[in-house]
Design a binder for these strands. Structure first.
Lengths: 143, 143
DNA sequence: TATAAGTATACTAAATAGGTATAGAATATG
DNA sequence: CATATTCTATACCTATTTAGTATACTTATA
Protein backbone atom coordinates (compact mmCIF):
# COMPACT_ATOMS: atom_id res chain seq x y z
CA UNK A 1 0.00 0.00 0.00
CA UNK A 2 2.53 2.56 -1.13
CA UNK A 3 3.65 4.37 -4.25
CA UNK A 4 6.44 3.04 -6.43
CA UNK A 5 9.82 4.64 -6.88
CA UNK A 6 8.82 5.67 -10.39
CA UNK A 7 5.86 7.60 -8.99
CA UNK A 8 8.07 9.31 -6.46
CA UNK A 9 10.47 10.30 -9.23
CA UNK A 10 7.53 11.52 -11.30
CA UNK A 11 6.39 13.77 -8.44
CA UNK A 12 9.84 15.32 -8.41
CA UNK A 13 9.98 15.68 -12.19
CA UNK A 14 6.70 17.56 -12.36
CA UNK A 15 7.64 19.60 -9.33
CA UNK A 16 10.86 20.59 -11.04
CA UNK A 17 9.17 21.46 -14.32
CA UNK A 18 6.51 23.45 -12.47
CA UNK A 19 9.23 25.72 -11.15
CA UNK A 20 10.50 26.63 -14.64
CA UNK A 21 9.28 29.56 -16.70
CA UNK A 22 6.07 28.59 -18.55
CA UNK A 23 6.92 26.91 -21.85
CA UNK A 24 10.60 26.52 -20.89
CA UNK A 25 12.09 23.35 -22.33
CA UNK A 26 14.37 21.41 -20.02
CA UNK A 27 16.35 18.41 -21.12
CA UNK A 28 16.19 15.08 -19.35
CA UNK A 29 19.79 15.17 -18.21
CA UNK A 30 19.27 18.40 -16.30
CA UNK A 31 16.23 17.05 -14.42
CA UNK A 32 18.11 13.83 -13.80
CA UNK A 33 21.06 15.64 -12.24
CA UNK A 34 19.10 18.16 -10.22
CA UNK A 35 16.72 15.60 -8.76
CA UNK A 36 19.16 12.68 -8.50
CA UNK A 37 17.19 10.35 -10.72
CA UNK A 38 19.01 7.73 -12.84
CA UNK A 39 18.83 9.15 -16.36
CA UNK A 40 17.58 6.05 -18.15
CA UNK A 41 14.96 5.38 -15.55
CA UNK A 42 13.86 8.99 -15.80
CA UNK A 43 13.54 8.73 -19.57
CA UNK A 44 11.33 5.71 -19.18
CA UNK A 45 9.21 7.25 -16.44
CA UNK A 46 8.75 10.61 -18.09
CA UNK A 47 7.41 8.90 -21.19
CA UNK A 48 4.37 7.81 -19.17
CA UNK A 49 3.85 11.42 -18.21
CA UNK A 50 4.22 12.44 -21.82
CA UNK A 51 1.77 9.82 -23.05
CA UNK A 52 -0.71 10.92 -20.39
CA UNK A 53 -0.52 14.44 -21.77
CA UNK A 54 1.01 15.92 -18.65
CA UNK A 55 4.33 16.89 -20.24
CA UNK A 56 5.21 17.78 -23.81
CA UNK A 57 8.36 16.29 -25.31
CA UNK A 58 10.60 17.80 -27.98
CA UNK A 59 13.06 15.69 -29.91
CA UNK A 60 16.30 16.57 -31.56
CA UNK A 61 18.86 19.18 -30.68
CA UNK A 62 17.50 21.66 -28.13
CA UNK A 63 14.89 19.07 -27.31
CA UNK A 64 13.61 18.22 -23.85
CA UNK A 65 10.44 18.47 -21.85
CA UNK A 66 8.00 21.08 -20.65
CA UNK A 67 4.65 20.92 -18.92
CA UNK A 68 1.71 20.39 -21.23
CA UNK A 69 -0.68 21.91 -18.70
CA UNK A 70 -0.76 24.70 -16.18
CA UNK A 71 0.67 23.49 -12.83
CA UNK A 72 -2.67 24.46 -11.30
CA UNK A 73 -4.33 21.78 -13.43
CA UNK A 74 -1.96 18.98 -12.50
CA UNK A 75 -2.77 17.07 -9.32
CA UNK A 76 -0.96 14.33 -7.44
CA UNK A 77 -3.63 11.94 -8.64
CA UNK A 78 -2.82 12.71 -12.27
CA UNK A 79 0.79 11.74 -11.67
CA UNK A 80 -0.04 8.55 -9.83
CA UNK A 81 -2.48 7.44 -12.50
CA UNK A 82 -0.11 8.30 -15.33
CA UNK A 83 2.69 6.23 -13.84
CA UNK A 84 0.92 3.37 -12.06
CA UNK A 85 -2.38 3.25 -13.88
CA UNK A 86 -5.70 3.70 -12.12
CA UNK A 87 -5.51 3.22 -8.37
CA UNK A 88 -7.39 0.09 -7.41
CA UNK A 89 -7.10 -0.77 -3.78
CA UNK A 90 -7.61 -4.50 -4.19
CA UNK A 91 -8.13 -7.06 -6.90
CA UNK A 92 -11.86 -7.24 -6.49
CA UNK A 93 -12.29 -3.69 -7.68
CA UNK A 94 -10.12 -4.43 -10.66
CA UNK A 95 -12.34 -6.97 -12.34
CA UNK A 96 -15.50 -8.81 -11.50
CA UNK A 97 -13.93 -12.21 -11.98
CA UNK A 98 -11.72 -11.81 -8.93
CA UNK A 99 -14.71 -11.06 -6.74
CA UNK A 100 -16.40 -14.33 -6.01
CA UNK A 101 -20.04 -13.35 -6.26
CA UNK A 102 -21.24 -16.54 -4.61
CA UNK A 103 -19.25 -15.67 -1.50
CA UNK A 104 -21.61 -12.88 -0.57
CA UNK A 105 -20.05 -13.13 2.84
CA UNK A 106 -17.14 -10.88 1.92
CA UNK A 107 -18.55 -8.46 -0.57
CA UNK A 108 -19.59 -5.80 1.98
CA UNK A 109 -15.91 -5.44 2.73
CA UNK A 110 -15.21 -4.63 -0.87
CA UNK A 111 -17.95 -2.04 -0.84
CA UNK A 112 -16.18 -0.42 2.09
CA UNK A 113 -12.86 -0.61 0.28
CA UNK A 114 -14.40 1.12 -2.69
CA UNK A 115 -15.24 4.02 -0.40
CA UNK A 116 -11.72 4.07 0.98
CA UNK A 117 -10.43 4.23 -2.55
CA UNK A 118 -12.80 7.03 -3.44
CA UNK A 119 -11.71 9.08 -0.44
CA UNK A 120 -8.03 8.49 -1.16
CA UNK A 121 -8.42 9.51 -4.78
CA UNK A 122 -10.29 12.68 -3.97
CA UNK A 123 -7.64 13.62 -1.43
CA UNK A 124 -4.93 13.12 -4.04
CA UNK A 125 -6.91 15.39 -6.34
CA UNK A 126 -6.80 18.20 -3.81
CA UNK A 127 -3.10 18.88 -4.33
CA UNK A 128 -2.02 20.67 -7.50
CA UNK A 129 1.51 21.70 -8.34
CA UNK A 130 0.81 25.42 -8.33
CA UNK A 131 -0.13 25.24 -4.66
CA UNK A 132 2.70 22.85 -3.90
CA UNK A 133 5.42 25.11 -5.30
CA UNK A 134 3.90 28.14 -3.58
CA UNK A 135 3.99 26.42 -0.22
CA UNK A 136 7.61 25.75 -0.97
CA UNK A 137 8.37 29.34 -1.98
CA UNK A 138 6.65 30.52 1.16
CA UNK A 139 8.67 28.17 3.30
CA UNK A 140 11.94 29.23 1.71
CA UNK A 141 11.24 32.87 2.54
CA UNK A 142 10.50 32.08 6.15
CA UNK A 143 13.74 30.24 6.75
CA UNK B 1 -1.01 1.12 -4.10
CA UNK B 2 -3.12 -1.86 -3.26
CA UNK B 3 -3.56 -4.42 -0.51
CA UNK B 4 -1.84 -7.77 -0.64
CA UNK B 5 -3.55 -11.10 -1.03
CA UNK B 6 -2.76 -11.87 2.60
CA UNK B 7 -4.67 -8.77 3.69
CA UNK B 8 -7.61 -9.74 1.53
CA UNK B 9 -7.62 -13.20 3.10
CA UNK B 10 -7.38 -11.61 6.53
CA UNK B 11 -10.47 -9.52 5.83
CA UNK B 12 -12.35 -12.69 4.99
CA UNK B 13 -11.02 -14.53 8.04
CA UNK B 14 -12.17 -11.84 10.45
CA UNK B 15 -15.43 -11.48 8.62
CA UNK B 16 -16.01 -15.20 8.98
CA UNK B 17 -15.12 -15.24 12.66
CA UNK B 18 -17.34 -12.21 13.27
CA UNK B 19 -20.30 -14.22 12.10
CA UNK B 20 -19.77 -16.99 14.65
CA UNK B 21 -21.28 -17.10 18.12
CA UNK B 22 -19.20 -14.98 20.53
CA UNK B 23 -16.37 -17.09 21.93
CA UNK B 24 -16.94 -19.88 19.44
CA UNK B 25 -13.71 -21.60 18.47
CA UNK B 26 -13.32 -22.41 14.81
CA UNK B 27 -10.46 -24.43 13.44
CA UNK B 28 -8.24 -23.21 10.62
CA UNK B 29 -9.32 -25.91 8.20
CA UNK B 30 -12.94 -24.85 8.42
CA UNK B 31 -12.16 -21.22 7.67
CA UNK B 32 -9.83 -22.33 4.92
CA UNK B 33 -12.52 -24.39 3.24
CA UNK B 34 -15.36 -21.96 3.66
CA UNK B 35 -13.39 -18.97 2.39
CA UNK B 36 -11.26 -20.79 -0.19
CA UNK B 37 -7.94 -19.85 1.34
CA UNK B 38 -4.93 -22.21 1.02
CA UNK B 39 -4.62 -23.74 4.47
CA UNK B 40 -0.89 -23.17 5.01
CA UNK B 41 -1.08 -19.62 3.83
CA UNK B 42 -4.04 -19.05 6.12
CA UNK B 43 -2.11 -20.44 9.08
CA UNK B 44 0.71 -18.02 8.35
CA UNK B 45 -1.58 -15.07 7.86
CA UNK B 46 -3.78 -15.66 10.86
CA UNK B 47 -0.71 -15.72 13.08
CA UNK B 48 -0.21 -12.03 12.36
CA UNK B 49 -3.78 -11.44 13.47
CA UNK B 50 -3.14 -13.47 16.58
CA UNK B 51 0.06 -11.62 17.41
CA UNK B 52 -1.74 -8.32 16.93
CA UNK B 53 -4.29 -9.40 19.53
CA UNK B 54 -7.19 -9.50 17.09
CA UNK B 55 -7.80 -13.22 17.32
CA UNK B 56 -7.15 -15.69 20.11
CA UNK B 57 -5.64 -19.05 19.23
CA UNK B 58 -6.11 -22.38 20.99
CA UNK B 59 -3.77 -25.26 20.43
CA UNK B 60 -4.30 -28.98 20.63
CA UNK B 61 -7.37 -31.06 20.07
CA UNK B 62 -10.50 -28.89 19.80
CA UNK B 63 -8.18 -25.99 19.17
CA UNK B 64 -8.70 -23.23 16.69
CA UNK B 65 -9.37 -19.52 16.62
CA UNK B 66 -11.87 -17.03 17.94
CA UNK B 67 -12.02 -13.26 17.97
CA UNK B 68 -10.12 -11.62 20.81
CA UNK B 69 -12.24 -8.49 20.57
CA UNK B 70 -15.81 -7.52 19.90
CA UNK B 71 -16.39 -7.19 16.12
CA UNK B 72 -17.47 -3.61 16.83
CA UNK B 73 -13.93 -2.87 18.00
CA UNK B 74 -12.15 -4.32 14.97
CA UNK B 75 -11.74 -2.02 11.99
CA UNK B 76 -10.38 -2.56 8.49
CA UNK B 77 -7.35 -0.54 9.48
CA UNK B 78 -6.59 -2.95 12.34
CA UNK B 79 -6.48 -5.81 9.86
CA UNK B 80 -4.33 -3.99 7.34
CA UNK B 81 -1.84 -2.93 9.98
CA UNK B 82 -1.69 -6.37 11.53
CA UNK B 83 -0.90 -8.03 8.21
CA UNK B 84 1.13 -5.42 6.30
CA UNK B 85 2.52 -3.30 9.08
CA UNK B 86 1.78 0.42 9.38
CA UNK B 87 0.55 1.98 6.16
CA UNK B 88 3.18 4.36 4.84
CA UNK B 89 2.32 5.77 1.49
CA UNK B 90 5.90 6.37 0.35
CA UNK B 91 9.42 5.81 1.56
CA UNK B 92 9.91 9.33 2.77
CA UNK B 93 7.35 8.89 5.51
CA UNK B 94 8.99 5.67 6.57
CA UNK B 95 12.29 7.11 7.71
CA UNK B 96 14.00 10.45 7.60
CA UNK B 97 17.04 9.12 5.81
CA UNK B 98 15.06 8.50 2.63
CA UNK B 99 13.85 12.08 2.58
CA UNK B 100 16.68 14.18 1.30
CA UNK B 101 16.37 17.22 3.50
CA UNK B 102 18.65 19.28 1.27
CA UNK B 103 16.26 18.79 -1.61
CA UNK B 104 13.69 21.10 -0.10
CA UNK B 105 12.23 21.20 -3.58
CA UNK B 106 10.27 18.02 -3.10
CA UNK B 107 9.37 18.00 0.54
CA UNK B 108 6.05 19.87 0.20
CA UNK B 109 4.88 16.89 -1.83
CA UNK B 110 5.62 14.60 1.03
CA UNK B 111 3.68 16.83 3.37
CA UNK B 112 0.73 16.44 1.04
CA UNK B 113 1.21 12.69 0.93
CA UNK B 114 1.18 12.58 4.68
CA UNK B 115 -2.28 14.13 4.58
CA UNK B 116 -3.40 11.62 1.99
CA UNK B 117 -2.20 8.87 4.25
CA UNK B 118 -3.99 10.35 7.23
CA UNK B 119 -7.25 10.57 5.34
CA UNK B 120 -6.94 7.02 4.04
CA UNK B 121 -6.22 5.67 7.49
CA UNK B 122 -9.12 7.43 9.10
CA UNK B 123 -11.43 6.15 6.40
CA UNK B 124 -10.23 2.60 7.03
CA UNK B 125 -10.99 3.14 10.70
CA UNK B 126 -14.60 3.94 9.96
CA UNK B 127 -15.48 0.37 9.06
CA UNK B 128 -15.85 -2.15 11.85
CA UNK B 129 -16.89 -5.75 11.46
CA UNK B 130 -20.10 -5.43 13.42
CA UNK B 131 -21.42 -2.94 10.90
CA UNK B 132 -20.03 -4.92 8.00
CA UNK B 133 -21.81 -8.16 8.91
CA UNK B 134 -25.04 -6.29 9.60
CA UNK B 135 -24.97 -4.72 6.16
CA UNK B 136 -24.54 -8.22 4.85
CA UNK B 137 -27.41 -9.65 6.90
CA UNK B 138 -29.61 -6.83 5.71
CA UNK B 139 -28.67 -7.45 2.09
CA UNK B 140 -29.40 -11.17 2.39
CA UNK B 141 -32.90 -10.46 3.62
CA UNK B 142 -33.63 -8.11 0.76
CA UNK B 143 -32.68 -10.57 -1.93
C1' DT C 1 24.32 15.92 -42.86
C1' DA C 2 26.26 15.36 -38.26
C1' DT C 3 24.89 15.47 -33.82
C1' DA C 4 22.10 15.86 -29.89
C1' DA C 5 18.08 15.20 -28.16
C1' DG C 6 13.83 11.79 -27.15
C1' DT C 7 11.38 6.86 -28.40
C1' DA C 8 10.70 1.99 -28.37
C1' DT C 9 11.66 -2.35 -26.99
C1' DA C 10 13.89 -5.67 -24.70
C1' DC C 11 16.68 -7.26 -21.20
C1' DT C 12 18.62 -8.10 -16.28
C1' DA C 13 18.91 -8.05 -11.22
C1' DA C 14 16.87 -7.40 -6.83
C1' DA C 15 12.95 -7.30 -3.95
C1' DT C 16 8.44 -8.69 -2.70
C1' DA C 17 4.43 -11.59 -2.81
C1' DG C 18 2.33 -15.88 -2.58
C1' DG C 19 2.56 -20.26 -1.25
C1' DT C 20 4.78 -24.77 0.71
C1' DA C 21 7.41 -27.93 3.87
C1' DT C 22 9.29 -29.59 8.04
C1' DA C 23 10.01 -29.87 12.77
C1' DG C 24 8.23 -28.58 17.17
C1' DA C 25 4.93 -27.36 21.15
C1' DA C 26 0.49 -27.45 23.51
C1' DT C 27 -3.80 -29.80 24.89
C1' DA C 28 -8.23 -32.70 25.00
C1' DT C 29 -9.39 -37.31 25.33
C1' DG C 30 -9.00 -42.39 25.95
C1' DC D 1 0.34 -40.79 30.25
C1' DA D 2 0.21 -41.72 25.26
C1' DT D 3 -1.47 -40.05 21.22
C1' DA D 4 -3.78 -37.67 17.84
C1' DT D 5 -4.87 -33.10 16.72
C1' DT D 6 -4.35 -28.47 16.43
C1' DC D 7 -1.52 -24.27 16.28
C1' DT D 8 3.68 -22.21 16.08
C1' DA D 9 8.12 -21.18 14.22
C1' DT D 10 11.27 -21.10 10.77
C1' DA D 11 12.92 -21.79 6.55
C1' DC D 12 12.37 -22.49 1.96
C1' DC D 13 10.81 -22.04 -3.06
C1' DT D 14 8.70 -19.92 -7.15
C1' DA D 15 6.45 -16.27 -9.75
C1' DT D 16 5.68 -11.58 -10.26
C1' DT D 17 6.81 -6.93 -9.85
C1' DT D 18 9.99 -3.25 -9.34
C1' DA D 19 14.04 -0.81 -10.46
C1' DG D 20 17.31 -0.02 -13.49
C1' DT D 21 20.20 -0.76 -17.98
C1' DA D 22 21.30 -1.48 -22.98
C1' DT D 23 20.62 -1.19 -27.87
C1' DA D 24 18.79 0.32 -31.95
C1' DC D 25 15.96 3.84 -33.85
C1' DT D 26 13.59 8.46 -34.89
C1' DT D 27 13.32 13.41 -34.99
C1' DA D 28 14.97 18.02 -35.40
C1' DT D 29 18.29 21.74 -35.27
C1' DA D 30 22.44 23.98 -36.70
Amino acid sequence: MKFTQATDYAFRIIFYLSQQKPGEIVEARQISERESIPIRFLLKTIRSLSQAGIVKSYRGLKGGYSLAQDPKEITLKDIVEAVEGPVRINKCLLNDKDCNKDATSWCPIHKALRNVQKVTNSELEKYNFCDLININQHRDKEE
